[in-house]
Simulated assay, not measured.
Amino acid sequence: MNALIEWIDSPEGLTQWGGPSLTWPVDAARLWQQIDADTLPSFSLKEDGELQAFGQLSPRDQQTTWHLCRLIVAPHLRGQQLGERLCRYLEAQAAHLGGTRVTLNVAVDNQPALRLYQRLGYISSAPVDERGVQPMARQL
């Protein structure tokens, strides 16, 4: 968790990653509780013991829809398809848990993430909200 915290360098970055309910400055123990890491399925990509990416699944609609949330890739590894690997892994986990649809939210000013999700087949599922967040979804 400490490595992940180092990737978040501002209150705005924290809100973009985890939503408005998270508090700054980031404290590992408090963050773990705030993101419900003990109850939500949480997944990491690691190589040689180094954390490369992290994401969670949150159930929706009697667990036929799973929400991909709190997706993040180590800043020094971005642009190497780790975001795609993480999304595909989370989608497979959602399907294994009985999901038939996945959703996610992306800040519209996060163009690399928006392009990734569009490339993976996600489409806008609602208008952009007042915070500049675009809900997206795709069938599994």
Score class of each variant (00 low, 15 high):
residue 3 A to F: 02
residue 3 A to R: 10
residue 7 W to M: 12
residue 7 W to K: 06
residue 8 I to F: 02
residue 9 D to M: 04
residue 10 S to P: 11
residue 10 S to N: 04
residue 10 S to A: 06
residue 10 S to F: 08
residue 14 L to G: 03
residue 18 G to T: 01
residue 26 V to F: 04
residue 27 D to W: 00
residue 27 D to G: 12
residue 30 R to P: 03
residue 31 L to F: 15
residue 32 W to T: 13
residue 34 Q to F: 06
residue 40 L to R: 12
residue 41 P to I: 11
residue 43 F to Q: 05
residue 44 S to D: 12
residue 45 L to F: 14
residue 45 L to S: 05
residue 49 G to Q: 13
residue 53 A to V: 12
residue 53 A to R: 03
residue 55 G to P: 12
residue 56 Q to K: 10
residue 57 L to N: 09
residue 58 S to G: 09
residue 58 S to Q: 14
residue 59 P to Y: 05
residue 60 R to M: 14
residue 60 R to T: 08
residue 62 Q to T: 15
residue 62 Q to P: 01
residue 64 T to E: 09
residue 65 T to M: 09
residue 66 W to G: 07
residue 70 R to T: 00
residue 70 R to D: 04
residue 71 L to R: 04
residue 74 A to R: 13
residue 77 L to S: 11
residue 77 L to H: 13
residue 82 L to K: 10
residue 85 R to E: 10
residue 88 R to S: 09
residue 93 Q to T: 04
residue 94 A to K: 07
residue 96 H to T: 15
residue 103 T to A: 07
residue 105 N to D: 14
residue 106 V to E: 02
residue 108 V to P: 00
residue 110 N to E: 09
residue 110 N to S: 06
residue 111 Q to R: 15
residue 112 P to D: 08
residue 113 A to K: 03
residue 115 R to V: 09
residue 118 Q to L: 08
residue 119 R to M: 05
residue 120 L to D: 04
residue 121 G to V: 10
residue 121 G to W: 03
residue 121 G to R: 06
residue 121 G to T: 12
residue 122 Y to W: 06
residue 124 S to T: 11
residue 124 S to K: 05
residue 124 S to I: 05
residue 125 S to K: 02
residue 125 S to R: 01
residue 126 A to W: 00
residue 126 A to N: 11
residue 127 P to L: 07
residue 128 V to Q: 11
residue 129 D to M: 04
residue 131 R to C: 02
residue 136 M to I: 14
residue 136 M to Q: 05
residue 137 A to K: 13
residue 137 A to W: 08
residue 138 R to A: 08
residue 139 Q to Y: 04
residue 139 Q to D: 13
residue 140 L to T: 00
residue 140 L to M: 11
